[in-house]
Design a binder for these strands. Structure first.
Lengths: 214, 214
DNA sequence: GTCTATAGGAGGATAGAC
DNA sequence: GTCTATCCTCCTATAGAC
């Protein structure tokens, strides 16, 4: 979190205001981009003065860093634990596991604040090294490692063919993330997303049929 | 192109200046984003005055629209013709065809102006409907149709298994574009891209092995 | 913790001379 | 086709009263 308040007593009212600022910033940044939103836009939306914002955040940059932090912190929540994976495999097949994974993932990524934060970081990745870092390392790389782990388990148990788990993870994830990105942009534009939803399910289906041990 | 000059005689000097403006804008926008670059930044980089720019472009928006247009126009050049496809298949196998396709594609997309324009449109897709439209329709959808066509040919000639060409195209393309996007960001940050290059080749290899008729 | 007031600069764009 | 000069708006951020 931002260090603005390191030497200040934090009151309930203060926390509430800071929270309002945060949520409003996420909303506006995700809609109009970091550079398309002014401090005035944010403060006037919640009826405080610009100067009040600077009591809670050092700068506009401090504010967006807080959003990055929020995203990075919550991205971890999208993972099934080893125990959960085991219990799914005990009752269902690998195909169900992949579906369950996507469900879990989408459950977190489509929470409004996370979806907006994701969008903000995606926009910022081109201008802000910190955003690119979080997106490519904390998000993509970690996520690929997670899938690698899952595929390794599936190979070990001979549920799927003896393919390189790392390569499988890359193949599987990049397709999914490409589709999910387009899906999210469509959702923001309030257009139909059914095509993309179907594609994602077909992707899992297709991928599964290519790798399963039959 | 922009309509600024509809009723004006275009001299060689004018064309040259407009071209300088265009190329400088592409360079700066791709580095610092549309909102991170001012008209002043562009004109001072080529030693003309702001007012001179407005002789060639109606507005900053007119300028970026010209860049969109440039991208959309040149994206078509990345396609192998049916004749070229035939001749490749006559001498080599489907695997070579996929490699050749990627080569052709990268050859166009990595030309400096195109790479920068692509980056600009990618950034703008979140803020500008026109950019999203070009990226998702003119680029992604058309490209997928192109691959669909190739896979259909391969299926017809029994070079690959009898799978749905459209699905194959989606699978193939989304992975590639995800990797290529990350590859391009890395290149802009002047970081190592070898990992991504290897991944792209492994992707083709992996995909090919999954679909070929053996 | 929030306010009023204001500093101080950068932005897009235009009028009109040459 | 390019210049000088200028307009006016919007921006981030701060000082200091309450």
């Amino acid at each position: 979190m931002s260090n603005t308040q390191n030497n200040k007593k934090i009151t309930a009212k203060g926390r509430e205001t800071k929270d309002k600022i945060f949520r409003t910033a996420v909303e506006l940044f995700s809609k109009n981009g970091f550079y398309g939103v002014s401090i005035r836009d944010i403060t006037s939306a919640i009826n405080i003065k610009e100067s009040s914002l600077y009591h809670h955040y050092l700068s506009k940059e401090d504010l967006i860093n807080d959003i990055y932090f929020y995203f990075a912190e919550n991205i971890d929540a999208t993972r099934l634990t080893d125990a959960q994976i085991d219990s799914i495999l005990a009752e269902h097949d690998g195909h169900s596991l992949l579906q369950k994974c996507l469900q879990e993932f989408r459950g977190v990524m489509e929470q409004p604040l996370m979806a907006m934060a994701w969008r903000i970081i995606s926009m910022q990745q081109y201008r802000d090294d910190k955003a690119f870092e979080i997106l490519s390392i904390d998000f993509h790389r970690m996520r690929i490692k997670y899938y690698e782990n899952i595929f390794r388990t599936l190979v070990k148990r001979r549920i799927i063919k003896a393919l390189d788990p790392k390569l499988l993870a890359f193949e599987y994830f990049y397709t999914l993330i490409g589709m999910l990105t387009e899906y999210n942009v469509l959702k923001f534009l309030k257009r139909k997303t059914q095509v993309m939803e179907n594609l994602m399910n077909e992707h899992i289906e297709f991928f599964w049929n290519k790798i399963k041990n039959s």
